[in-house]
Amino acid sequence: MILAVAASAATVFASAPAEAHWRGHVMDRDLLSGVWVRSAGEACAEAYPERIEMQDLGIYAAPGAVDAGKLWHSGDWELEGGVLKMQAANDAMLPYRIAALSGGEMVLLDADGCRIVYRKA
């Protein structure tokens, strides 16, 4: 599978919803920490790993993602307002709008609007 990791941060920000929507929100990094398992959903979400382990130090690992040709393998994550940046396979920090985040579910939207749903393991 060919990974589409060329998108720059600027491009993605331009396509994200109005930042004002997120102004005032303070995302809790603690909510992001933990093991997340991808839920069945849109086909486009198949590009993302089945399982990610996010540590509060701002690093994550996705076991098996390299062999499966996924977009995220391991690396850094950053939280900027309502945007989660994940280090991609080529080291680009790709931004994802957080559409929903609770203790049990995380919904991300990528640059192309693909909806990626993870649930806490």
């Binding site: 690093i59 690992a61 391991s74 690396g75």
Partner: peptide
Amino acid sequence: VHEIGHAMGLYHNSSDNGFMHTTGQIAA
């Protein structure tokens, strides 16, 4: 070296703290 490793077709490798592990992971 890590980025040139990518250009040579290598992906991230967290098996050890070698060149293809990510810097953030090594720091942690």
